[in-house]
Nucleic acid binder design. Sequence first.
DNA 1: ACCGTAGCACTAACGGTTAGCGTTTAAAAA
DNA 2: TTTTTAAACGCTAACCGTTAGTGCTACGGT
Lengths: 203, 203
Amino acid sequence: MTVPSGRRERKKAATRQKIADAALRLFLERGYDAVGIRDVAAEADVAVTTLFSHFASKEALVFEQDEDFEQRLTQAVTGRAPHEPLIPALRREIQALVRHCTADGADPIWHMIDGSPALREYEESMRLRHAESLATAIAADLDLSRATTACRAIARFVIDAFSLARVAADPEAAVDEIFRMIEAAWEVTFPPAGPAGRGGCRR
Amino acid sequence: MTVPSGRRERKKAATRQKIADAALRLFLERGYDAVGIRDVAAEADVAVTTLFSHFASKEALVFEQDEDFEQRLTQAVTGRAPHEPLIPALRREIQALVRHCTADGADPIWHMIDGSPALREYEESMRLRHAESLATAIAADLDLSRATTACRAIARFVIDAFSLARVAADPEAAVDEIFRMIEAAWEVTFPPAGPAGRGGCRR
DNA sequence: ACCGTAGCACTAACGGTTAGCGTTTAAAAA
DNA sequence: TTTTTAAACGCTAACCGTTAGTGCTACGGT
């Protein structure tokens, strides 16, 4: 059965997008809580069960680009320039992501999210998954077979930076401030090689 | 209408406890997902609506001592010995809380929590509330009128320490390891007064 | 041309949660 | 004490997110 190439995948992606678009339109028009799953399904002209075969929950309709976020984080670690230290690379990526979320146009969506407890809760558990992925990527970068406690801690701190900066008065300054703390935390656990350092480790 | 003193409060607390006990018993017997709200209400011999007047959700039945946890955190800040530095005081409290959660007897409960996505999700959003309370307490300790980004970051890091240590192979060592990072993060943002320090600030 | 599979649809239900409304009972006011 | 008030509790009935069960359709590989 190899990989279903071509038309099928396109149709599936199109249906998914149609549902996501319809959902976002209705949510922004009438408010998240005032729109039911059955409304979204009707607007997208699909059955309720079809909707749930594309999205695991109502909240997932809002965080459609979930996996993009996750991939950008891990890519920031695994795909950075050779010899570039880890933490600054992460700082740049978080900076970019925060800018993206606080840009004009994205504002109504985040306003809606902040206004719904269900969405805030969902977002947080999503961030936890992202932190675990990031921890794994960091561990791999250090040639560790599995994520240690220290890797997990740094990953959480980075995610915290994003989530605090997003709601801060000056998001970019907040990222810088928190990353100064993360940098310090990093160095006590993974101290950089001294000036006469023997190892070739890039940090 | 002042404060309804006496019998009424006791009866209410008794009902609440009866519900919580019944819930925990059933959950541990049959598993969280296999027990319905209607089952719990019947076991506690109250109406479903009564149950929901004491607990905001099914998950809240499991995290009954939610507020104790929150208070122990803020007390660790506001009620510590004079001149005791903040971070070590928090480390001691987190250490104690982790020990409490990983003690024999508490194990089946946490096993149940880790086995249910709904409970894990609920726990995380609970921790976020705790982090905000802690951030406020820390800000007050520093004579700040409102919690700054740095306060919020430290508070999150502390909560992260708890939640990572709880699932670590060696919880106590994990607390120590993460708190070394937190200590470093703290000192870059709130540097201690030097040997000739002028201020009387305890840090 | 032919099958296997994946996408999709429909109905009906389950389970958490809430609204509406009435009853009891304890506390406060008279 | 008596009256008043409001909180706790109860019941019914529903809303809404989510899923199981079942089958149809159409694309892709052979």
